[in-house]
Computed example of a mutant assay.
Amino acid sequence: MTALERHMFLKLLLWVIRLLTLLLIVVSILPEMPSGQWWVRLWEFPRLQLTLALAVPLLLLALHIWLKRPRKEHAVLLVLILAIGGWQLLHILPFTPVWSNEVPTADAQTLEDQSTFKVLTANVSYSNDSYSEVVALVQREDPDLLLLIEVNNEWDEGLAPLTEHYEYRVGEVRGEGLGIVLWSRFPLLEQEVKHLVSERRPSIFATLDIPGIGPIRYVGTHPVPPGLEDRITHNDETSERRDSRVRDAELMLIARHVQRDPDNRWIVTGDFNDVAWSDTTRLFADLSDLKDPRHGRRLLSTYHAERPFWRYPIDHLFVSDGFHLIDLDRVRLKGSDHFAITTTLTAARKDQANPEASEEEHQTAQELVEEGTEDASEHDVSD
């Protein structure tokens, strides 16, 4: 390599490092914008992937430093890359063992005298036809509460054997990935299917009577994902991708339901189509005062099951205080692009404290509800 070629190579390499660093800075801070646009909100999802992607400019920078004497710009680029990594890790680390638990671990010595129950939550994917395999998985896992999402007529027929194992059922069977059904071994003192923002998106509200524990309020939900191509269009020639506003509004309305009844124990579970560290999910947790069992334990990424590198924690289970965790795991669901989540819980003392969300958080939630309702109305999905 001639001196000129070496000079041109080093110059090109430096520009590549600059552009990659700038790109990673932009996509890292983009989700901080107060926008519901899908192409903004989607950058909340790949924080782990973006952290790993920082290895590319970091290695290229090391190469450039090795080939050319260190200079001030090298230090600046290194600081920027490390700052981006620190910012991303700040969102991820709470879902690792280095952080403290939000839901305490149950004391093994006292479990013999306590009632326990198991919850399984799974998005079965409506285009999937592995009905018997899913039934076999449910029988093997043997949950007391089973929430299945994207249940259409074919799935409803395929899941018929479950009626032998579960006496109680509530939900709505719909096509296009919109169905949601809860099976329960526990009596349902109250049950209702609500359409919080969109008539096309049902959520399940129930009160369960669990022996040895008492009544527990339960919500199962599946808000619309941002970026989903809208099937409801104003004419046959146009379509557009959905923003996050309807999803955000649904989560805020559920948080309000919980907030209005803090004396009861609550479980909220489902495919939120939102990652655990997003501003919306954190606001949902603050308003409702619900806790995430993954906090301080593991990410438990559930989607996409077939693409390990592009996998995010979007299937959730939140609980109020008054529960301790026995076990938390994910299970592969044949034919689905989601893993199932299994959670085993036991009751603990309830502190009866009211949620302590700030006035600013309440205002933000109200704005999200108003924007989501307006967005649903504009796209002809609110009635």
Rank of each mutant, 00 (worst) to 15 (best):
R201D: 15
T342N: 05
T110Y: 07
A108G: 14
T269D: 01
F318I: 00
P202H: 01
L162G: 14
A305D: 07
Q363D: 11
R231M: 14
P225K: 00
W38Q: 09
Y218C: 03
L30A: 06
Q88D: 04
P223Y: 04
Q191L: 11
A53G: 10
T221M: 04
A340R: 05
I213D: 04
V151Q: 12
D279I: 00
L162A: 13
S288K: 03
S132Y: 12
Q88K: 11
E167S: 14
N264R: 09
W38L: 11
N354K: 14
S198R: 07
R231K: 15
N152P: 13
R294K: 02
H234Y: 12
I84N: 02
P223D: 08
V258K: 03
A347E: 06
L23I: 09
P225Q: 03
L182I: 07
Y166P: 03
Q366G: 11
H91N: 08
L189P: 10
A357K: 10
P94T: 04
P46W: 01
R200W: 15
V369G: 06
M1I: 11
L61G: 00
T233S: 12
S130T: 14
R256N: 15
S35Q: 08
P94K: 03
S244W: 09
A83R: 13
Q88C: 11
Q352N: 02
I341T: 02
L78C: 06
F309W: 14
P70A: 07
H304T: 03
L19R: 10
F318N: 00
L147D: 13
I180M: 04
L80K: 03
S184D: 01
A348N: 00
A62F: 12
D337N: 04
V40D: 05
S239K: 10
V173R: 11
Q366D: 11
M33G: 12
L90E: 15
W43M: 06
N153K: 14
I29D: 10
E73D: 10
D236Q: 13
T21K: 04
F318K: 01
E154N: 15
K11A: 14
I204G: 06
L77S: 02
D243A: 12
E199W: 10
L14E: 13
A55C: 11
S127V: 10
D292T: 00
A357Q: 01
L14C: 06
R256Q: 13
T21E: 00
G270Y: 01
Q259C: 08
L196N: 01
E250K: 06
V27P: 06
D248N: 05
Y126M: 09
A136H: 12
L137P: 10
E192G: 09
F95S: 06
I65W: 09
L333H: 10
R307C: 07
E32V: 15
L299V: 09
Y168I: 03
A285F: 01
S125V: 11
I213W: 06
I341V: 05
I210M: 01
G335K: 02
S125C: 12
S278R: 05
L54F: 05
A136D: 13
R231S: 15
V134I: 11
G214T: 12
Q37P: 13
L60S: 02
V369I: 15
E371M: 10
R18Q: 07
V151H: 11
E73S: 14
L59K: 00
A276H: 06
I254K: 12
E154C: 07
E157H: 02
R349E: 08
D286R: 03
R217V: 01
V40N: 10
P313W: 07
A62T: 02
E359I: 15
V197S: 03
